[in-house]
Design a protein around this nucleic acid. Structure first.
Lengths: 182, 182
DNA sequence: CTCGCATGAGACATATCTGTATCGCCTGAT
DNA sequence: ATCAGGCGATACAGATATGTCTCATGCGAG
């Protein structure tokens, strides 16, 4: 078998991340054109829009897992793990948004991937809390919410050209722990 | 003139905030049904989807302005103004999102409303910075980004039933200024 | 060189959305 | 009571998206 099939499938997924990320209502024709493949080829690899959305979401989850796992490999504390995970996740923020999208949320695999992701983050935050990183009277759910939204904020800075990914990650982590006061 | 016309127009706008806020790709039939009016009536009040989006965005901007203006009336410092403005904006977060949507961004009135909103927030943050509220080495653009994202985070807490609007606003403001550390 | 297979282009049918027009009904004003 | 105007329901046409199928092409494996 030629390897063009896997190649075009990857092209479609990458183009779909771009096109559907910027405009979730874009047509599959737009996605196929952006991928440089025929519309029929897209339908050969994905049954339809829903199938494509599920594939995108699962790949986003996979990429996030891989990036975070690699990044936190050398960390000795959970707090430091959160710091480097934020740095690793920030450039993938636009893909991470697919996880939170309701679109493919009905698929059981997607639901499981999202739940696993949230559960892992919650667990690490609880562990970091035990290390004394967070105030005792702040709910864990708020910490999770803050963590994710600061990642988006950082990525917005990068997209706006106001910061490099690492600068944005440092700003986000500093704000996460200390806030903006002098 | 009977007042039913303004009534149904308001119904449509409110339903559109809900329906299109939750699913931007929803059809105008869905909006009309949620508003409890016929599809034809929707077209009588709004020329089409674009027109409706513009109306939603302008009303969101207007509501935000009014809420913030009322809230900050008695504030003596810009820093305190930011604090109470956050509290006032948080319950309107789902409508504020329409301002950031690219959908109606081509309309000049929408562009102006969005630019005015951002400019006012930037100005107030600069003024609060002069009051010593923010560290000198943090860019104003990042402060703006953080402010808006913490509002969304707070609203997410409210939607999830994890906090009341005021509790969420307090958490957001505390995180904004001091971060999450003990 | 020849064959297999994925692909691109395009035809085709179907479904949904959209915008417009029409008609009868009902409500509230006079 | 009468009347004007807003409304719901419905029909209709055009546009777009979607899913399926066919056919010729080109590239690589054997």
């Amino acid at each position: 078998m030629r390897d063009t099939s896997v190649s075009s499938k990857v092209s479609i997924l990458n183009a779909a991340f771009d096109v559907l990320g910027q405009n979730p209502g874009a047509s599959l024709s737009d996605v196929a054109r952006a991928a440089g493949v025929g519309r029929a080829t897209l339908h050969r690899h994905f049954a339809g829009r829903d199938d494509l959305m599920v594939a995108l979401t699962l790949q986003a989850a996979e990429e996030l897992d891989a990036a975070v796992d690699t990044a936190v490999a050398g960390c000795t504390t959970y707090t430091d793990g959160l710091r480097v995970a934020l740095r690793a996740m920030l450039p993938l923020a636009s893909r991470h948004m697919f996880l939170a999208t309701d679109a493919a949320q009905t698929d059981p695999r997607v639901k499981e991937a999202y739940a696993t992701q949230t559960r892992a983050l919650t667990r690490d935050i609880e562990a970091a809390r035990a290390e004394g990183t967070f105030a005792a009277d702040i709910p864990t759910t708020w910490i999770v919410e803050t963590y994710e939204n600061l990642i988006y904020a950082g990525w917005a800075m990068v997209v706006a050209g106001e910061a490099t990914p690492n600068q944005a990650a440092d700003l986000a982590w500093r704000t996460f722990t200390q806030g903006l006061k002098p």
